[in-house]
Design a binder for these strands. Structure first.
Length: 710
DNA sequence: TGCCATACTTAGAAGGCCCGTC
DNA sequence: GACGGGCCTTCTAAGTATGGCA
């Protein structure tokens, strides 16, 4: 007997009738006797397929696209109805893609789809326009083939983040393992056995003993206060002074453990690696709308001491252990809800598809909410990223108008408008952050544009031969110092003088302005415009301009990459992305320099050898000596190239000493600019983006051609 | 309008891992 | 095979922005 099936994929998103294959086009039969299947297309074609091929299709929802298809399926739900998808047009592509994934039908799949295309010829033809030339020319590698091109699908309506979400919940920090008996803690020179709770917190301090933090007064004070809360009353009465606590033995024990880990055998290391991989496989992915997606941070933050940046008033406080009872789970109603660890329960399970997070909890230091969300390579993050750059591109179209407007506003009768206009000028010209208000005493004292204080700027009517110079000196995000002397227009200068009149150093420079007022104004100028869009826009446009200016068509690849890094660096400087110079910087520069010196000597030798070979060839005039000259020539060329590479490397590294390129590359530069540049100059994309970055920017790599303009 | 809660992006530090060199 | 160094990943802090409510 023959049974007819709908082709039923991933929670029913793609059923045969709905995707316009229709029963008219596609029938799938199960032959109960032989346990095999037959696919028929309008009775013009039939294909016998193994049951294994269909097995996953008949288990809704089925997850597509991950390279390691490990059978990680969401559990089928009897009552789950197919979700209507606003992306039907792409079903053919999706199906084609899916079918081509299956090695067992690849040989048949072409004819299979040819027939389908016949019945939808027009549609399929249009679809082809979307496929980049390169994709048509060469057969994509397996890895590429399996990637889901979410950017070719329609987006969900505003506000809806997903329709189906299933995950396994978070991974908790391992429980505390008490120290071995022989590891001692000393108080006032005497051995003291601590209770488990007090000992655990003590180990947090011991592990940081070599860090500068533990020398800081606030850190020590906060730590000691919170530590005492974990002590027994007896311990509390004994341990009254942190300076009398000796953690060195504990610290040595942890260092020895680190050392032992390094010395582990290959097999032991492999075992740990495998365990991590297992954890990742089990908890590191979720199913979001038919696709298996990587989770960014599936591990709950372990307890420890809070490491605030800069002069954070709460540094050293105890970050408590997060328990299942603190956790809110967010997933689909019809998904398999992750079970809490035995003997525990979740704080709450909710089903909110207007947010992107899977798990949340409230931390105890600032009382803020922490989230578990998806990896940057996921659809949900990628779409948002793409959208961000599109907003910045829209700003490009109206930025001149906005600039004219704020220049006009410098003359406004209203103080509020003038302040807004000057602040916006700084945000635009200097790529300053918006500068939200912060609760005093709760965080480090840092500012952005709107929260600048009088003490953060100095006005110089003339400085180093330039007129109307503003000297900025303040701590920005992460307590990174912003120091800059900027010549500004006379009107800006005069306005600043006005804003500073009769104010104390600690008073707000823009006392009639905050980020909310500013952003409301920006929203009126362009839909979706906020202060941070200027940073994205200016970063991306700077990269594009710099690349045009710095790329020399005659340069070889390393020199072109140096140009790229220089363009990237210009952006990082604009955005003030600094880093502490690496501890090994001087040493590594010296090493590189000695390599260069050695290479120079090698080159001199090679040139000498070439000269004598030429002389020899002149005398001998035979084939053998001619050949020797040729090989010596090649050797010189090779060494010259190697030397050049080393010199470029040294320049690049020196210029990068205190500048962090990663942040702008990852967050501010429209990746399509970089992709287009690579395509234009024949630079392999791997030279610009590493694997993770390529995954994050897969959408850009796929869609940008060499003529892309930001 | 201000305040607070919430959700999400942006950020540098730290440490692990991998690769080149000896 | 050991070692060193740099790149990559992970971690989580610190921002921005928005919406709801009084």
């Amino acid at each position: 007997m023959w049974h007819c099936y709908f082709l039923y994929l991933s929670g029913g998103l793609l059923s045969a009738s709905k995707c316009n294959f229709g029963l008219r086009h596609l029938f799938l039969y199960e032959d109960k006797d032989s346990l095999s299947f037959v696919a028929g297309v309008q009775e013009t074609f039939s294909l016998k397929l193994e049951p294994s091929f269909f097995a996953s299709f008949f288990s809704p929802p089925r997850i597509k696209d991950e390279p390691d298809d490990d059978g990680f399926y969401a559990s089928p739900k009897e009552d789950s109805k197919p979700l209507k998808r606003p992306r039907e047009d792409d079903d053919l592509l999706v199906l084609k893609h899916l079918f081509s994934e299956r090695g067992n039908i690849v040989a048949c799949s072409n004819s299979f789809f040819l027939i389908l295309q016949d019945s939808k010829a027009k549609k399929a033809k249009n679809k082809d326009k979307k496929v980049p030339e390169a994709d048509k020319r060469k057969k994509p590698k397996k890895e590429e083939e399996q990637k889901w091109k979410w950017w070719e699908e329609e987006r969900y309506p505003e506000g809806i983040k997903w329709k189906f979400l299933e995950h396994k919940g978070p991974v908790f920090a391992p429980p505390y393992e008490p120290l071995p008996e022989n590891v001692k803690f000393y108080y006032d020179g005497k051995v003291m056995k601590l209770s488990t709770k007090a000992e655990e917190v003590a180990t947090f301090f011991a592990k940081m003993l070599d860090h500068e933090y533990t020398t800081k007064e606030i850190f020590r004070k906060n730590f000691f206060k919170d530590w005492r809360k974990e002590m027994t009353s007896e311990e509390k009465s004994t341990i009254t002074n942190l300076s009398k606590c000796d953690f060195t033995h504990m610290s040595q024990y942890f260092k020895a453990q680190t050392e032992a880990r390094k010395q582990m055998s290959k097999e032991e290391k492999q075992k740990i690696k495998e365990e991590n991989e297992r954890l990742l496989k089990e908890y590191g992915y979720c199913v979001m709308d038919n696709h298996k997606e990587r989770i960014a941070n599936f591990k709950i933050e372990p307890p420890g001491l809070f490491r605030g940046r800069g002069n954070h008033p709460k540094m050293g406080m105890l970050k408590r252990r997060i328990m299942p009872e603190d956790i809110i789970i967010n997933c689909s109603k019809d998904s398999k809800i992750p079970p809490p660890p035995p003997g525990h329960k979740w704080k709450e399970v909710r089903h909110d598809n207007k947010v992107t997070w899977l798990v949340s909890w409230t931390e105890n230091i600032q009382g803020s909410i922490k989230y578990i969300m998806l990896n940057p390579s996921s659809r949900i993050k990628g779409e948002k990223d793409w959208q961000k750059y599109e907003t910045a591109r829209r700003l490009k179209k109206c930025v001149d108008k906005i600039r004219n407007q704020y220049r006009e506003d410098w003359k406004s009768k209203e103080m509020k408008v003038r302040q807004r206009a000057v602040a916006l000028y700084f945000i635009d010209k200097l790529a300053l952050r918006a500068g939200n208000e912060k609760e005093e005493g709760e965080t480090a004292d840092t500012v952005g544009c709107c929260s600048l204080r009088v003490e953060h700027i100095k006005l110089h009517p003339e400085l180093d031969g330039q007129e109307y110079v503003v000297e900025f000196d303040f701590l920005g995000k992460d307590s990174i110092r912003y120091y800059n002397k900027v010549p500004v227009e006379k009107r800006v200068f005069k306005n600043l003088q006005l804003f500073m009149e009769n104010k104390q150093p600690e008073d707000d420079l823009f006392d009639r302005l905050n980020t909310s007022i500013l952003n409301k104004h920006l929203q009126d100028l362009m839909e979706g415009l906020t202060a941070k869009v200027f940073r994205t826009y200016n970063a991306s446009i700077t990269l594009q301009q710099q690349l045009k200016e710095l790329t020399n068509p005659d340069d070889n690849i390393p020199a072109k990459i140096l140009s790229y890094n220089r363009a990237n660096r210009a952006v990082a400087i604009l955005c003030n992305h600094q880093r502490a110079p690496p501890k090994t910087f001087e040493k590594s520069m010296m090493n590189l320099q000695s390599k260069i010196d050695a290479k120079k000597e090698q080159l001199a030798d090679a040139r000498r050898e070439l000269k004598s070979a030429k002389a020899d060839a002149k005398v001998r005039r035979d084939e053998k000596s001619k050949k020797t000259v040729e090989s010596k020539k090649k050797a010189v060329q090779r060494i010259e190239e190697q030397l050049m590479k080393l010199e470029v490397q040294a320049t690049d590294r020196e210029e990068n000493k205190q500048i962090a390129l990663g942040t702008s590359k990852l967050n501010y530069l429209d990746p399509r600019i970089s992709v287009a540049w690579c395509k234009k100059w024949g630079i392999p994309i791997e030279k610009i983006y590493n694997k993770t970055q390529r995954e994050k920017f897969a959408w850009a790599i796929d869609m940008a051609e060499e003529d892309y303009e930001f």
